[in-house]
């Protein structure tokens, strides 16, 4: 290099030494604390109601298409639901329909008195909080495909929770 380029090189690296030291220091000082990757999904799954293990034993319902298990969570009674095989219907929602709700045709969802309690995803177990009026166990759980607008499965909550209806 010619002399003027060597002088430019010296100045450039004096500036770089200061600038890069500042960038590195600030970049590391303000670096966010990240949890180990394997912990984050567990917290998110618990927050979304995904459950790796039921509180009690599994019971087959709806002609053997679903496994259910009763339990309790912070809100009261809970029900863990797990499809035995993937349900090939879009947007599966889970509704509680009390006995007092208006009767409906087999493929339709009553508009009065139904309570949305959660959704399902593939064959993952999902723990869902149930409303207080399920304590009597009179009513049914309906799995409904929002995309196809049809009832996929329904089963009596009482039969799902028998023989011992109450874990309290």
């Amino acid at each position: 290099m010619i002399r003027s380029r060597r002088q430019a090189h010296r100045v450039a690296f004096l500036v770089l030494a200061i600038a890069l030291a500042a960038v590195l220091t600030a970049g590391l000082a303000f670096r966010p604390e990240l949890p180990p990757p394997h912990e984050a999904p567990e917290a998110l799954e618990a927050q979304s109601g995904f459950s790796s293990a039921p509180d009690g034993s599994w019971a087959l319902v709806a002609d053997g298409t679903f496994l259910v298990s009763k339990g309790r969570d912070a809100n009261g009674r809970s029900l863990t639901i797990r499809p035995v095989a993937p349900i090939l219907k879009p947007d599966l929602l889970v509704y509680w329909i009390p006995e007092s709700a208006a009767p409906s045709a087999s493929g339709e969802l009553p508009t009065e008195g139904t309570v949305l309690v959660g959704s399902l995803a593939a064959t993952s177990p999902r723990r869902l909080s149930l409303p207080e009026d399920t304590d009597q166990g009179a009513g049914e759980i309906v799995i409904y495909s929002l995309g196809h607008k049809e009832v996929v499965a329904r089963f009596s909550l009482r039969s799902a929770l028998s023989p011992s209806d109450d874990t309290r």
Binding site: A12, F13, V23, G27, R31, P32, L34
Partner: peptide
Amino acid sequence: WKALHMWVYLAYALLVGHVVLGALQSTS
């Protein structure tokens, strides 16, 4: 030509910033 190619030092500084504010922020 040499003066133009000394821009590599600017490129290096930008890349250090790219790594510090990118990859380093998404790894613990």
